[in-house]
């Protein structure tokens, strides 16, 4: 079902449509919050605030095809509000690279996953945001990416290229070869 239909039905109280929207976009919202190096608790607050904002404004989202951009921008704004509002003890990357001692989850992680995670963690916040958005919302235009990350439109392509190059260098430094462009 397309996003426009889901939004319309959710606004009318169809909880199934709302849950589908949550399933579809909650990884994007989560990733934007975590890209700001928020702890899991603070990222959870940002996520909830973002979804509350959507519920409160669902009838004003006039361009359903831009919902991903709307959510990403709202999540970024909520993250910055949290960071400005108080001293947030952001986790060090090493701490939140191992979010849980959950054996079941750990077995699902490969060594390659861990290396990618470490290389991703070495990037600047803006690079993490930009690459995460591209990974979770590939439909976003450069203009939407620019708004969600806080860049000028003209800087998105160049910044993306630099971020990918840095990620490749980090991966190479960790001994992981990445051959495909990306």
């Amino acid at each position: 079902m397309d996003t426009a239909t889901l939004l319309t039905r959710a606004a009318q109280g169809d909880q199934s449509s709302w849950r589908t929207l949550v399933d579809r976009y909650s990884p994007l919202v989560w990733r934007v919050a975590r890209a700001h190096r928020l702890s899991t608790t603070d990222a959870a607050d940002v996520s909830q605030s973002t979804w509350i904002a959507l519920a409160d404004n669902i009838s004003t989202v006039h361009s359903p095809d831009r919902l991903a951009g709307w959510l990403a921008t709202t999540a970024r704004r909520e993250s910055l509000k949290l960071l400005r509002g108080r001293e947030v003890a952001t986790d060090t990357w090493g701490e939140w690279a191992d979010p849980a001692d959950d054996p079941e989850q750990t077995t699902l992680r490969t060594e390659r996953d861990d290396l990618l995670w470490r290389a991703f963690g070495a990037l600047r916040v803006r690079c993490r945001q930009l690459l995460a958005l591209q990974a979770y919302a590939p439909e976003l235009s450069y203009a939407e990416l620019a708004a969600a990350v806080g860049l000028a439109n003209s800087a998105v392509a160049k910044t993306r290229g630099r971020c990918l190059a840095t990620l490749r260098r980090e991966l190479a430094g960790l001994g992981l070869r990445v051959e495909e462009a990306g």
Partner: peptide, 10 residues
């Protein structure tokens, strides 16, 4: 692509 590999890792 590297971006999709990244998504899987995240």
């Amino acid at each position: 692509s590297l971006v999709w590999q990244l998504r899987a890792a995240l």
